[in-house]
């Protein structure tokens, strides 16, 4: 079992400017994908960056099993692959594994490569990869250290629609095979509904949660792979659109 992620009153302001995020309070319990959607500028990236330690929250806390999150417990995938261009696929994936003995490191890399279907490209340089492959390397790099918390910041938004759908299948596959709490940011409602078992809508700035729905896991209408044309899917989609609409928050 993964430990519980508790976020309490998380707020972020850059310098002396007005806060761009929060306060956000949220509890995530267990494995599977939680999707966060919101308009551009609503503070989604800021939220994930606060969890990863890339930004220091102005107020509030985030804990894993009651303890502050340690960087070693977090995997992060950015919107762009951000691979080291001088390292092969294999070495890029090993990037966060420096602490492991050689044999274990090798095994972890092989496992991660297999999980995202990249074993055949192990010795390629980043310049030889397609956009989708590069993003899969980034995913494998984040997975290899076996993080408890996997943070994905719009990992698919730079890809073309066909590749994106393929990548969604990869992410779903990964989610079903690792033990991690996964937070997926996306601005694509269909993507959120296709992958997540919980969807959170953020509106801002300052980014706050305006909707938090749990997808009924055992409802056959939401069995994977999900039928995007089904009536419940469409109804849920409608709810998300309504939540994203610009209406006063108080209502």
């Amino acid at each position: 079992m993964t430990r519980q992620l508790d976020i309490a009153g998380l707020t972020k302001a850059f310098g002396t400017a007005a806060p761009v995020l929060g306060p956000v309070s949220l509890t995530l319990d267990g494995e599977g994908i939680t999707a966060i959607i919101g308009r551009s500028g609503s503070g989604k990236s800021t939220f994930l960056r606060c969890l990863s330690g890339l930004e220091t929250p102005t107020r509030g806390t985030a804990t894993l099993g009651g303890k502050p999150i340690r960087p070693a417990e977090v995997g992060f995938v950015f919107q762009e692959p951000r691979l080291m261009p001088w390292l092969s696929v294999r070495r890029n994936i090993a990037f966060g594994l420096g602490h492991l003995p050689k044999a274990e490191r090798k095994q972890a890399v092989e496992d991660a490569m297999a999980l995202v279907g990249l074993s055949a490209a192990a010795d390629y340089l980043p310049k030889q990869l397609s956009g989708g492959m590069a993003q899969r390397v980034a995913l494998a790099r984040a997975l290899a250290p076996r993080p408890e918390l996997l943070l994905l910041d719009e990992p698919l938004s730079a890809l073309d629609p066909l590749t994106r759908e393929q990548m969604q299948a990869h992410i779903l596959h990964v989610a079903q095979h690792i033990r991690a709490t996964i937070l997926l940011i996306t601005h694509d409602m269909d993507e959120a509904l296709a992958l997540a078992n919980r969807v959170i809508v953020l509106r801002g700035p300052p980014g706050r949660i305006v909707l938090d729905v749990t997808i009924p896991e055992h409802d056959p209408a939401y069995a994977f792979p999900r039928d995007r044309t089904s009536a419940p899917f469409q109804a849920m989609r409608r709810r998300l659109i309504d939540a994203l609409e610009e209406r006063p928050l108080a209502a």
């Binding site: 890339l54 070693a72 951000r82 001088w86 966060g96």
Partner: peptide
């Protein structure tokens, strides 16, 4: 953006220099 990759992997100053900054500067 590359430095941030090191930071999310908990790289300290020295490892950032040896594994990201120097190779990128090569």
């Amino acid at each position: 953006k590359l430095i941030e990759v090191g930071r999310v992997h908990d790289y300290g100053r020295l490892r950032l220099m040896l594994r990201i900054q120097l190779p990128a500067a090569m």
